[in-house]
Design a protein around this nucleic acid. Structure first.
Lengths: 210, 210
DNA sequence: AGTAATATGTTATACTATTATCAGTAAAAT
DNA sequence: ATTTTACTGATAATAGTATAACATATTACT
């Protein structure tokens, strides 16, 4: 159904999904591109364009059915299936991801944590077992993993990511401040936290910049 | 020196800074736009364009001096001064930010944590005091704070952010999955973690999409 | 039923961002 | 010293994104 979708549109999809879920929770049944635009600070035109990448989910003279559109966008995002994740690195960030209760709610399920620290191996974090990093290859052979969360030290990140990919992982959520060089078919989303702070710093310094 | 700088360029600046720092650590003294481009997976042309937003830091026939360019971009990003931060919300994410050792290294200094949980108030996380949320207004009046890290529950996020702004905060690093509506002079950088997972999910489902 | 109002899907236009080109300057080589 | 090579900075060309305009369909109202 959907042909090529630009990165710009992809980046906005989760925002649509989030707002539609909120609207649904508020009991709103219908919304126009205009109304959604005001809420999301986007133009009505852009919203109609974006949605129409995937099909005509609206009705002229009426607008969009909130639950219906939410359902469609959820499906487009692939949120109708459960995604198994492993977290690699049980440091501050790996821990925070493991303990988060908002990802499970969205069908992302962490099935194991890996670390090299003997102290941590064998313990549980948020109900998830911490396993020995050495055993990761065999674990991946025996368990279906969709996404690996990479939260290891900088020095080992590239090597660890390669190991994951060699063992069948094809999506990496990378929290390490490095640009991983992986096969093009491997999907990577970077969360370079420091960059957010640096951008804030820049914007404070250049107030005038529109 | 720098006129208007587009969002696209701003987003790339931290990446330049990071790679230049790496190069500096590797002892590399000089690099061409081509060389840097290969390293960062950008075109040489784009790199020259980006850098030239801020001035002619390169030399024809030679390229760019790594330490000099790093220094310049650091200054452009405002990293030559210390930024005081407070963390609002001592949950998983607030905790992870407080415990991180990579932000202090970049001149971002957390001076206090705030929470409403009586159990947490008075304790220390990563050497930082957890204070009562009730006291935040007076704290802000008496301490210079550049950036507030917002990591509170969804329900209270907007209200808390408003309170911060009313008390002089004009930069918010927002980890809550909500689009804050704040005065336009307040700088906000969102870290909507769930969105990264959803984008990975989308990309796995639509492999063919380029 | 007929008319006015509303709101989509689509096409056209304007804007922004990226990539390519090239003149000109510095360094290296002969 | 002169030529060749390497590189930037600037400008031009292309590609990508967002906005505006409009024809058409649905709803609400009289």
């Amino acid at each position: 159904m959907a042909g090529y979708v630009s990165e710009a549109v992809i980046r906005r999809l989760p925002g649509y999904y989030r707002h539609l879920k909120e609207l649904e929770n508020e009991g709103v049944k219908q919304i126009s591109s205009q109304g959604l635009g005001e809420r999301m600070s986007l133009t009505a035109s852009q919203i109609r364009q974006d949605i129409n990448c995937f099909g005509g989910f609206g009705r002229q003279g009426y607008g969009y059915s909130v639950p219906e559109l939410r359902e469609h966008i959820g499906e487009i995002l692939g949120l109708n299936k459960v995604h198994n994740m492993i977290i690699v690195g049980a440091g501050n960030i790996g821990r925070a991801v493991a303990l988060s209760d908002s990802f499970p709610a969205n069908n992302f399920c962490t099935i194991a944590l890996f670390d090299t620290d003997k102290q941590k191996i064998g313990t549980r974090i948020g109900g998830i077992d911490v396993k020995d990093m050495e055993t990761i290859a065999s674990f991946l052979k025996n368990n279906p993993v969709d996404i690996a969360v990479l939260a290891v030290p900088l020095e080992t990140a590239q090597q660890t990511a390669e190991c994951l990919c060699d063992n069948g992982v094809h999506a990496v959520w990378n929290f390490v401040p490095v640009d991983l060089k992986l096969a093009p078919e491997v999907k990577v989303v970077n969360v370079h936290l420091e960059e957010g702070l640096e951008i804030l710093s820049f914007k404070m310094k250049h107030q005038d910049n529109t």
